[in-house]
């Protein structure tokens, strides 16, 4: 059953990667990267248990922290840039 969960997580990571490559805006890429990072935490926690690694949970916890700080840092950087670039304009669906 753990194998099925691992496969599901990897499939989701692939979907997030597709979104990261497609864009269309840089914010979409960052959102996909953040989702990818969270899935990595889950993958380390579950995969490490399935392969009976040692101390994998510490790595997962650290990865969660780095992922969060990284997202905040990149978003601060985007915000501080004078000219934001957004490809799509608002409108009606």
């Amino acid at each position: 059953m753990l194998t099925a969960a691992i496969i599901a997580i990897i499939v989701t990571m692939m979907l997030a990667l597709i979104r990261a490559f497609q864009g269309p805006t840089e914010y979409d890429r960052m959102l996909a990267a953040n989702a990818f990072g969270t899935k990595t935490v889950l993958l380390i926690a579950i995969g490490g248990h399935a392969l009976s690694w040692h101390s994998h949970l510490d790595v997962a916890l650290l990865y969660a922290m780095v992922n969060f700080v990284g997202t905040i840092a990149v978003m601060r950087f985007f915000e501080s840039r004078a000219d934001g670039d957004c490809g799509e304009e608002g409108g009606t669906l």
Binding site: Y27, E79, G84
Partner: peptide, 10 residues
């Protein structure tokens, strides 16, 4: 950040 960069939601 997206709002700041000029994105407006559909």
């Amino acid at each position: 950040a997206a709002l700041h960069g000029g994105c407006r939601p559909l």
